[in-house]
Design a binder for these strands. Structure first.
Length: 479
RNA sequence: GGCGGCGUAGCCAAGUGGCUAAGGCGAAGGUCUGCAAAACCUUUAUUCAUCGGUUCGAUUCCGAUCGCCGCCUCCA
């Protein structure tokens, strides 16, 4: 089975066939950088990170573009989010943007999310956006009123095809004041007139102003990925209006399909309701990292499919972390065995079959719309088999072990982005810990159990767990 | 009201028109161990929200009902 993915546009699972053989052009809606990123952002960008990683693993050349929104994204009040944030923190708008762009990438790095190939800023692409608006005016799909330009949805019968909405069914003014400049309540802003005191404004054919929110994604996606792109991703809540607006304005300019596959990830919930800025029920990623490692958060998120919601609680992350520890345990034992293996012995069929089967089942899971929970289940099955093999104390499996470790490095490491060795931290303490272990083992030789247990307990109190086996004593940090 | 989605064991979570309904966490018992830890073995859903229908057969398809969530121009 080749890669299949669920396309929001057709509401079906489809065989993935890129527009150009062997290449994938992917665009994902990035963050608006006016505050710290929270767990909701983590789920979203981890989901697309997995897609990016898996496409590369599958042999595609990928260009992954994810924008940084730093202008034009308005609040209900009509204020620009960036300007509101700049006022709150008493800094220049671009200073605020810099601050939270850095915070965003710091958080993503901690979660081991690979950087996109291009992270374009909206404010750095105003000419491209103006150019698109001009084309829409020339085509007759847009109109200008008092220095603002709106997209005319009545000229575009397909408007709403992604979300399945029809404009005449919308309740105008249900949530916001009706804008009297618009010809139709569903018309959306491509360009907004700026009042003189507005801090972020650019010259345009229609006077001083700033771009509407939706136009940035179309302009930047097309600039870097072409008029038709393979994959466009984003959060479900952006299907309407954001993505429907992107489709309408892009296709009205080019006359070509804008996106072949639309992918939408689901939400993070807190006590059953969506985690969001406006509800104030969010946990920032940096706060979560105080309690859990990036790997633990990542593993927790990947144990739910990207299209399903996940309820975020400390208990749930803790339970997932126990599972991750299980995978780590198998990997640790495998690594330790490899350090002192003998070259003797033939490759055993049992081990070779395990490697092949694990790889096959993992790929089958991921090919089915990136089913990470199922893929992780495959790794758990493999871990159990590894533990059994290593427990069996057979020397003749040694030669077959390197491919098993390489497989884990590839599937868990490269594709899922998990670090199983857990060896990054505290290595400077290793010689001293190992010294204590040697001492303890000397006590054990003498059957001095009280001293041996005291060393073990004291180490445990300091977060170091010992595990005795026949040949050696393994140790690890416990988070 | 409109559009989309969900309801699987104590908890989390895959999945399939018929073959033992994955896996993880937790819990109980056992093996191993000086004792632990880790690991391994066994047990933990005769049943997939409820009620109908299609079918030789449905948890899986269809319909209704109940409950929950998201969106309907703020959000990843």
């Amino acid at each position: 089975m080749a890669l299949h993915l669920y396309n929001s546009l057709t509401r079906k699972k489809e065989l993935f066939e890129p527009l150009q053989a062997g290449r994938v052009h992917m665009y994902v809606c990035g963050p608006t950088v006016y505050d710290y990123p929270h767990i909701g952002h983590a789920k979203s960008y981890i989901a697309f990170d997995i897609i990016n990683r898996y496409l590369r693993f599958s042999g595609y050349r990928v260009r992954y573009v994810q924008n940084i929104t730093d202008v034009g994204h308005l609040l209900d009040s009509g204020e620009d989010r960036i300007l509101r944030g700049a006022e709150r923190e008493q800094v220049e708008p671009m200073e605020l943007v810099e601050r939270y762009t850095a915070a965003y990438f710091r958080a993503m790095d901690a979660l081991n999310v690979l950087r996109p190939d291009i992270s374009p800023h909206a404010a750095g692409h105003v000419p491209e956006q103006i150019e698109m608006v001009q084309k829409l005016l020339e085509n007759g799909y847009a109109y200008e009123v008092n220095g603002s330009v709106y997209f005319n949805v009545e000229k575009w019968p397909d408007y709403g095809k992604l979300s399945g909405r029809r404009v005449d069914e919308q309740q105008a003014g249900a949530r916001l004041e009706i804008n009297t400049e618009k010809r139709h309540p569903a018309d959306f802003a491509l360009w907004k007139r700026a009042e003189p005191e507005h801090l972020m404004q650019w010259s345009s054919p229609w006077g001083k102003g700033y771009p509407g929110w939706h136009i940035e994604c179309s302009a930047m996606a097309m600039k870097y990925l072409g008029e038709s792109i393979d994959i466009h991703g984003g959060g479900m809540e952006n299907k309407f209006p954001h993505h429907d607006c992107e489709i309408a304005q892009s296709e009205a300019v080019t006359g070509k399909p804008f996106v072949k596959y639309w992918l939408h990830n689901n939400m993070v919930l807190v006590d059953g309701v969506k985690m969001s800025k406006s509800l104030g029920n969010f946990t920032t990623i940096s706060d979560a990292l105080e309690k859990f490692s990036g790997d633990q958060l990542r593993f927790f998120i990947l144990q739910t499919h990207y299209k399903s919601p996940v309820d975020f609680t400390d208990e749930a992350v803790q339970a997932a972390s126990q599972g991750l520890e299980r995978l780590r345990g198998a990997y640790r034992k495998l690594s330790e065995r490899l350090d002192r293996r003998s070259e003797a012995g033939a490759e055993q069929m049992a081990v070779m079959n395990l490697t092949a089967e694990t790889r096959r089942r993992f790929i089958e899971a991921m090919d089915d719309d990136f089913n990470t929970p199922l893929a992780i289940g495959v790794l758990f099955d493999c871990a159990r088999e590894i533990n059994k093999l290593l427990d069996a104390q057979q020397d003749d499996i040694d030669a077959a072990l390197p491919p098993v470790k390489a497989l884990f490095d590839s599937l868990a490491g490269d594709v899922l982005g998990l670090s199983l060795s857990g060896e990054e931290d505290g290595q400077s303490a290793a010689p001293f810990i190992e010294l204590l272990i040697d001492l303890r083992n000397a006590f054990r030789q003498e059957r001095n159990w009280s001293m041996a247990d005291r060393i073990r307990d004291e180490l445990q109190n300091r977060g170091v767990v010992l595990e005795d086996s026949k040949e050696s004593t393994l140790w690890r940090f416990e988070k």
